[in-house]
Amino acid sequence: MDQPNNLSLEQQFKLTVIRNKLVKLNTHESRSYLHLTLQYMLIKENIIKFLVKRQRII
Results as ranks from 00 to 15, higher is better:
24 K>Q: 12
54 R>T: 04
38 L>Y: 06
45 E>Y: 02
12 Q>K: 11
51 L>C: 09
11 Q>D: 07
35 H>E: 10
37 T>G: 11
12 Q>Y: 04
9 L>V: 04
18 I>K: 11
30 S>H: 11
40 Y>F: 10
27 T>D: 13
29 E>M: 08
13 F>A: 15
11 Q>T: 01
53 K>D: 09
14 K>P: 00
40 Y>C: 00
50 F>C: 11
48 I>W: 03
2 D>M: 09
2 D>P: 02
53 K>Y: 03
2 D>L: 10
17 V>I: 04
24 K>S: 11
56 R>I: 05
48 I>A: 11
27 T>M: 12
41 M>Y: 04
41 M>S: 08
15 L>T: 06
21 K>H: 12
30 S>Y: 15
27 T>V: 14
57 I>F: 04
33 Y>V: 02
27 T>F: 13
17 V>R: 09
8 S>N: 09
56 R>E: 07
2 D>I: 05
9 L>P: 00
29 E>D: 15
18 I>M: 13
41 M>H: 07
40 Y>I: 01
7 L>K: 04
14 K>I: 02
15 L>A: 15
18 I>L: 15
25 L>I: 03
54 R>C: 07
16 T>Y: 09
23 V>D: 08
57 I>M: 00
42 L>G: 01
55 Q>F: 07
21 K>M: 14
20 N>R: 10
32 S>W: 14
4 P>I: 05
15 L>D: 10
32 S>P: 01
10 E>G: 02
57 I>G: 00
1 M>Q: 08
31 R>Q: 10
45 E>F: 01
40 Y>E: 12
52 V>N: 10
7 L>G: 00
56 R>Q: 11
57 I>W: 08
24 K>I: 05
37 T>A: 15
4 P>A: 10
46 N>D: 12
29 E>T: 01
42 L>P: 03
44 K>I: 00
19 R>L: 12
49 K>E: 09
33 Y>N: 03
44 K>A: 06
18 I>H: 05
33 Y>S: 06
48 I>L: 10
26 N>W: 01
41 M>P: 01
31 R>W: 09
50 F>G: 06
58 I>Q: 00
6 N>Y: 06
14 K>W: 13
35 H>D: 14
16 T>F: 09
49 K>W: 01
24 K>D: 06
46 N>H: 06
57 I>P: 02
55 Q>M: 00
35 H>K: 15
6 N>A: 12
57 I>V: 09
21 K>W: 04
48 I>Y: 06
50 F>E: 10
58 I>G: 07
26 N>C: 05
42 L>W: 04
29 E>N: 10
18 I>T: 05
35 H>T: 11
2 D>Q: 12
50 F>M: 13
37 T>E: 09
26 N>Y: 02
3 Q>I: 07
54 R>D: 10
49 K>A: 09
5 N>G: 00
55 Q>N: 06
10 E>N: 09
32 S>D: 14
47 I>M: 09
44 K>W: 03
12 Q>M: 13
27 T>P: 02
37 T>F: 04
54 R>W: 04
18 I>R: 12
14 K>N: 15
42 L>V: 01
17 V>G: 00
14 K>E: 14
51 L>E: 13
29 E>R: 13
43 I>A: 14
9 L>A: 15
56 R>D: 12
13 F>R: 14
44 K>E: 05
